[in-house]
């Protein structure tokens, strides 16, 4: 990593850091599926060391935003900048090398590959003889995966699959980790575990952009948040402020 004027900011402190610490920036992004205008001018930024959450109703465009960042989709208008570089047209497989990790919606683990093979796929872009340390790190975060290395991905429970999906994305040593609904379909205890692990991953220096339906939890772990409505940013701010916001409370916190 190139040395910034100051050291890597302590977790949580990043929210207050200057804008020159912006890691990822979307400016007026418009993304389409054929004729469907899914993102209608989204602008947001994620600073080094932050956890930023993206909340919004089903179909608001959260997944589309993440896909536009990781290069699975390209904006028709507007730009995506990562570490100061325009990546709007860059292919997804090249962005992994650049430092963007994406754990997609629905987990999408390789169900016929073993747990270990799934993790090795996560480190696909890295020298294969240099991943032991990363495997240990993932097994520290998710001890249950260690007991199941030779099991097929498809035979894992939902919670274990989610752990594998996150662990797999971590194997690429991302500088920003995009997480799309990691708590979906998990039991309350597992949801707590996943959120705790997200904070732990962040505390060791990985910036996180978190998409969640579980808005309350997301706004508790995140520094800042954006509320997406039909492809546009309706609201943004510090998580603490968003939690107090009337509209957010009504629409997303079920109050």
């Amino acid at each position: 990593m190139t040395a910034a004027p100051s050291a890597v900011p302590a977790p949580g402190a990043a929210a207050a850091a200057g804008s020159d610490d912006v890691l990822l920036r979307l400016e007026n992004v418009h993304t389409y599926y054929g004729h469907i205008h899914a993102l209608q001018g989204v602008s947001l930024e994620v600073r080094r060391g932050e956890i930023v959450t993206l909340i919004g109703a089903n179909g608001a465009g959260k997944t589309t935003t993440l896909k536009t960042i990781s290069g699975l989709l390209h904006p028709r208008e507007g730009t995506v900048t990562f570490e100061g570089r325009d990546i709007s047209r860059t292919a997804a497989h090249q962005l992994v090398r650049a430092g963007i990790g994406h754990s997609p919606e629905g987990r999408r683990i390789f169900s016929r590959l073993t747990v270990l093979e799934n993790l090795k796929m996560g480190a696909f872009t890295r020298p294969q003889n240099d991943i032991e340390g990363d495997l240990d790190h993932v097994f520290e975060l998710f001890p249950r995966l260690k007991e199941r290395t030779s099991q097929r991905g498809g035979s894992l429970s939902g919670g274990e699959q989610q752990m594998l999906a996150i662990g797999r994305a971590m194997m690429g040593r991302p500088r920003v980790l995009l997480l799309d609904e990691p708590s979906l379909g998990l039991s309350p205890i597992l949801v707590q575990q996943i959120f705790a692990i997200i904070q732990e991953i962040n505390s060791t220096g990985t910036t996180i952009l978190l998409v969640e339906q579980n808005a309350l939890q997301a706004l508790i772990v995140a520094n800042r948040g954006y509320v997406l409505q039909t492809g546009e940013v309706a609201l943004s701010g510090l998580s603490a402020d968003l939690r107090e916001n009337e509209m957010v409370r009504k629409a997303y916190l079920g109050e």
Binding site: A91, H93, V96, P104, R108, R112, L113, G122, F124, G172
Partner: peptide, 15 residues
């Protein structure tokens, strides 16, 4: 094998 199973997920691994 990854590409055969899930092309988009394989792309996200850098394939």
């Amino acid at each position: 094998r990854s590409t055969a199973q899930d092309r988009e997920a394989a792309e996200l691994m850098g394939v």
